[in-house]
Design a protein around this nucleic acid. Structure first.
Lengths: 347, 347
DNA sequence: CTGTTAGCGCCTTCAG
DNA sequence: CTGAAGGCGCTAACAG
């Protein structure tokens, strides 16, 4: 039979309140009884019943993670790092894959609330009104929240983001510095703040270089491989650029594949740069030049922020802005190398 | 303030037991009161307190998923499918990334037990004695368990596996039928039953073809990209085969990369076949020939099995064996094509 | 069909 | 420093 606090109390010759006190480390207990109780607990392999204590308003030590798609490498790696750090901090993680579906998002909100998680980490874009309202509601109820990758100032909450503008800028600068002028840009579904900021960075770099941005070179419908291929094909049909900036590594893979189908060599005929620096970037051929997000750190910091928030150590909200970094591999090169050009002209 | 069953009872003019009955759909209640209570619940936006009911021995509607590494595409996709189906069935999922670390595994066991999940799905190899004992303990306590990808007959439990032997056999037959004779095999850490069975399938196919298996062509230290590269390099140093069977797609990627470093063209100089058919297989260049596991189905079936087990509808244990399938893409070809051979001899 | 009444295991005043 | 007692929200006999 499962041991209860009564078993421990009896075996230790004290009352349950004393046991409760040593468990929670509250009140003043004599060293000797404390030790005795601890010994008994160990001996009986006693484990407090979480539900009983949750019932009296204590924490559950569960947190929720809302993510669009754990099968996506970026979110997979992120989830892993959150889970790891949260585990160290004593929390278990409930994971929710929303598929960016507003209905699922709100459903999960209420499920998590009902399960009385101690806090929630959002790693999903909250785009529609419905989800925003739900989020606001949760925030108002005082449930600690941390947001990753998004920065919406609807309610004050902790945020872990990278400087997306800088990311877009870095990627584009890199391509420009290689000599590219006809640069395409492949976004996701255009809804997230991350994309928008990266696009602004792209524009800024283009402006600085005095290159006019051609709208027909900007496309995007979603975040999957298929979307990347489709967007690339769409662009290629009207105008073949010498370089493409894709807003994540998966999309970049799609671009590479489409390029291949069109008979374009990467990076000889077409430079491709991605975003995220997931392990995918090392898998592709050629290995992908990309903008690195410190995924592991983002997850870790988010978990820590949430833990602090939960323990009430923190009164103010934090905003952590991490810096992206350019990781140059082999999918980018100067445009129109002599020989490549010759070959192409040979058509 | 949070509504309780008392609020509902009062507002509906009935006792709390009546409310409890309509919630749990037990006992006989007149249609009219039932409707009234339902109406009130909706109006008050009442949500039963999970902990209170868990305290009285009811289910928590939480399940646990133990996986070695959610950042690995196979387990990421698996987790996604489990989560999705479990969600439909009314369960939330706690995810645990074990890193194949025995200590973490046992820790997670006890955490999940303490959180009184209704059931657990294992998608991780239980190799060491410690973990096995823990697992056996859990099973004996009557906590529903489903095991994915592994089949250990320590205790009777539900199992969802693929026919790994057949998988290894299919992969090898494919290579042999292309004309390969010097075939290498890259395993993981050699501990999982899946690997062992795949290796047996490999042997069987080789035997049938009358090819002697060269031990120096079999290597493996782990499941990561790095491990794949290392194993491939190790093999190449002693003997360059014409084909490699890698036991997962990640390892296959590693092989392809190492091959490239060694100046070997895939598939011209070296055929590579993977296992799993994760999205990675479409990302590589050339696209990877691989043995497909029905990942989505495995996750779904596991969730369903567990749900049945939890609801007590099932008395006997099931074993679901799914069939792997050969997916031919472009990383495999007949060995020593004329031109390739000429080039090589030219060295 | 419905209400009353014990607990479930633990935390937290309030008295010693 | 320690114990007694009430209550957290709900379920499950037990009585009507």
């Amino acid at each position: 039979m499962k041991k209860t606090i009564y078993d421990v109390a009896e075996a230790a010759g004290v009352s349950i309140s004393t046991v409760s006190r040593v468990i929670n480390n509250t009140g003043r207990i004599s060293r000797s009884t404390r030790q005795r109780v601890h010994a008994v607990m160990k001996e009986l392999d006693y484990q407090p019943n979480v539900h009983a204590s949750a019932l009296t308003g204590k924490r559950t030590n569960n947190i929720g993670l809302l993510t669009p798609d754990i099968a996506n490498p970026f979110f997979g790696e992120l989830a892993k790092s959150v889970e790891e750090r949260a585990g160290e901090l004593g929390f278990s993680m409930m994971i929710c894959s929303t598929d960016r579906d507003p209905k699922k998002e709100t459903t999960y909100f209420s499920v998590l609330k009902q399960k009385s998680v101690d806090g929630i980490i959002f790693a999903t874009g909250i785009e529609n009104q419905e989800s925003m309202d739900a989020l606001e509601g949760i925030a108002k109820e005082g449930i600690p929240l941390v947001m990753i990758s998004q920065d919406r100032a609807l309610v004050p909450l902790d945020v872990v983001v990278i400087d997306d503008f800088m990311g877009g800028y870095l990627a584009t600068r890199h391509l420009i510095s290689l000599g590219h002028k006809t640069i395409a840009c492949i976004a996701g579904d255009g809804s997230t703040t991350g994309e928008k900021d990266r696009l602004k960075g792209f524009q800024k770099a283009m402006d600085e270089a005095g290159i006019k941005v051609n709208e027909s070179l900007i496309a995007g419908t979603g975040f999957s491989l298929e979307c990347g291929k489709k967007a690339a094909a769409q662009i290629f049909e009207s105008n073949i650029p010498t370089a493409v900036f894709a807003m994540n590594d998966v999309l970049a893979c799609g671009v590479i594949q489409t390029a291949r189908e069109w008979g374009l060599q990467v990076p000889t005929d077409l430079s491709v740069i991605g975003f995220d620096n997931t392990f995918l970037a090392e898998m592709t051929d050629p290995p992908l030049t990309t903008v690195s997000q410190p995924i592991e750190e983002m997850g870790r910091r988010a978990a820590e922020l949430l833990a602090e928030e939960i323990s009430g150590e923190k009164s103010s909200k934090n905003k952590i802005i991490l810096m992206p970094e350019l990781v140059v591999r082999q999918s980018t090169a100067p445009p129109f190398k002599k020989d490549a050009h010759a070959e192409k002209s040979g058509f």
